[in-house]
Simulated scan of single mutants.
Amino acid sequence: MAELIIPGPQGRIEARYTEPPFEGAPIALILHPHPKAGGTMQDPISIMLYQMFEKHGFGVLRYNSRGVGRSQGQYDQGIGELEDAAYVLDYIENLSESPRYVWCAGYSFGAWITLQLLMRRPEIDGFLAISPPANHYDLSFLAPCPASGLIVSGDSDAVSSPEDVERALTKVRVQKGEEIERTTVKGANHFYQDRREDLIGTCEEYLLRRLAAAEEKLRIEAEESD
């Protein structure tokens, strides 16, 4: 893992980066919780997501959004933070040699930014949205959602309750062939205290299932073209 300073829209962006292990390896971008609630790239869940993707052969990058840690700029109500995310995604893509898959994962505020980023970046193949704060932010901008992904929340989460997430998703449409899966982690609050391993296990199962399905599809297409 390398420490990076990326020249961003508002000055430097502090990041941590693991290079793709081989040419064409998939890549993933990790987005942290709300800066005004102490969210940084050193958040335990952000680190665990990073390590999960790294374990499965991804090039991975996590970073501090503007005004956090050594990243320059000021908090910008999500507008500038989305600009940072798009900029950093460009950066990691430029560091990679034709990545096979592009994923994005975010926790809390980072999940909200992740879902917005999907709508602007058609190259994103999959996403993990951990506890998007559905009681604070409208998700109807996912119209239609252009990629398949997983939305997870704890069944004891007061910020992203299962009821709020389900209510928000009633307004969401999905492009043909794509699917948003929903699941909850039993006994988990918004911070997944004593449930973080369960959370990552849920995310890992989904990731591996998606990767296996994508590889099988490529295999079938290759056989049909022979």
Rank of each mutant, 00 (worst) to 15 (best):
S96H: 02
S160G: 03
G149D: 11
R209V: 00
S156D: 14
R12A: 09
P122G: 11
A134V: 07
P9E: 02
T170E: 14
P26Y: 03
A222M: 09
I5E: 13
A134S: 14
E205S: 14
R70N: 15
A214R: 09
V165N: 09
G149T: 04
L128A: 06
S96T: 12
F53E: 04
P35Y: 05
V152I: 15
D226S: 11
E204Y: 00
I92M: 08
I92K: 01
E166S: 13
S156A: 13
L31N: 09
L89H: 10
L150I: 10
D164R: 07
D90E: 15
P35V: 02
I220Q: 13
Y91W: 15
P122C: 07
P162S: 10
S153Y: 05
R182Y: 15
V174T: 12
Q74S: 15
E93H: 08
T170F: 02
E81D: 04
P99T: 04
Q72V: 01
I13A: 05
A158Y: 11
S148D: 04
M48I: 02
R173F: 01
P7F: 07
K176S: 13
S46R: 03
F127N: 05
E123Y: 01
G154S: 11
H34K: 08
G24C: 09
R209A: 11
D84W: 00
A222Y: 08
G80C: 03
G110F: 08
I13R: 04
S98N: 15
S96L: 04
K217W: 04
Y107C: 02
Q77E: 13
T202N: 04
Y87L: 06
T184H: 06
V102P: 03
L169V: 07
E123G: 14
D226I: 03
